[in-house]
Design a protein around this nucleic acid. Structure first.
Lengths: 207, 207
DNA sequence: ACCGATACCGCACAAGTGTGCTATAAAAAG
DNA sequence: CTTTTTATAGCACACTTGTGCGGTATCGGT
């Protein structure tokens, strides 16, 4: 046998190449040939790890979820104050640097494609639920309440409203900074997020 | 000469067909052939009104701005109270019914393409400025202050912060309800928007 | 030393793409 | 009626796409 490569690791590497290509040429530019060329392999070599173009894109999309997960988990246990951890958690979802920027690009592109593809539907719903869960977690961290245990666990109505709002704000920040990075600098992003978390924490009169 | 059709009107009609196609098959499915077929014309007939595929898509994208403009203008002068008018204005940007839903689909698709195309760049920036202007207008309507006159006029720092936040919320609502219409029902959308406008109006302690 | 599995290559093909082009039908203008 | 202008049709071409398939080099196992 030849080099005997680690299949999973190689697939992950190739997925990063797909990210780069999508970031530069959009998802319609992420053709099999271009990804192969960018990865420095032949078109057949790519097909050895992904049996179809759809499968390649789906895996690349799933990889951003796999990349974000550990990063937020790292913030979950620590000795920082709750609101600070909430901020760090949600900031992992936002395009604050080049790496997260390309992740967001890929994610938005795949989200749009999921409306047509159907193969990414499962992933799309899982990601929504995961993001909502993180928002609930952030609310709990800001307020010092009991964090939700399983994904899907709702908070009580008052806090759930905060989670919904945070979710909307995070998605809005994502879209704006991804589509208009020149109009929306990152420090403005941080400021908006911090203000919303402050509001969640202090909760003035709570309506 | 034959029927002697109104060129502009026909182009607008064809643009609506492009909307339908994008709504159903995504922007990558909006090929010249499919649009022609859906419009009931031949591929050559389409090319008589649009000299290129890019031009077709660009015009279709510009048409959503042209469609939204008059609708918000209709809300601007009226005898309703300010906050109510602010709500109506911003709701015109959100996918609250099937028509606005397809507009949002088209808009998001073209926004994503603008990151690669370049031909839509001008339109993209104009739309951003327009949306920000409407948010400033909504703030002024909620607070009873003097509305901004020209697009690009900033409010004072306090109110500008509200406008930024509203802009983020509107975009977040747009993305969420467009991508996850099943998870985010329209009445929830209305509730979030109304809460944010309330906050803009009452402005509790203003940080 | 040999075998066979494995990683990778790259051509071939059908399908689909945008676009240029000519042809045709229709109706206003003379 | 004839002419001329316009709307529409649809074929042809070059090109790109995803994918199937046979070929080849490489290295671990025996």
């Amino acid at each position: 046998m030849p080099k005997l490569v680690d299949h999973d690791r190689r697939r992950a590497e190739l997925a990063r190449v797909v990210w780069r290509v999508i970031g530069r040429h959009g998802i319609e530019g992420a053709t099999v040939r271009r990804v192969a060329e960018e990865a420095g392999v032949s078109i057949g070599g790519l097909r050895h790890y992904f049996d179809s173009h759809q499968g390649l894109l789906r895996f690349a999309a799933a990889e951003v979820a796999s990349a974000v997960g550990p990063r937020v988990a790292a913030h979950l246990d620590g000795d920082l104050p709750g609101p600070e951890r909430a901020r760090l958690v949600l900031e992992e979802l936002l395009p604050l640097d080049a790496d997260r920027r390309v992740e967001v690009d890929v994610w938005l592109a795949c989200l749009a494609r999921a409306r047509v593809d159907g193969a990414m539907d499962e992933l799309r719903h899982a990601a929504w639920a995961g993001e909502r869960h993180l928002c609930r977690l952030a609310v709990a961290l800001c307020r010092g309440g009991a964090p939700p245990t399983a994904i899907g666990d709702e908070l009580d109505e008052r806090l759930e409203r905060h989670a919904r709002r945070l979710h909307v704000v995070v998605d809005g920040l994502t879209l704006q900074t991804a589509m208009f990075p020149d109009r929306f600098p990152v420090d403005e992003l941080r400021e908006v997020l911090r203000a919303e978390l402050d509001r969640t924490a202090t909760d003035p009169a709570d309506r």
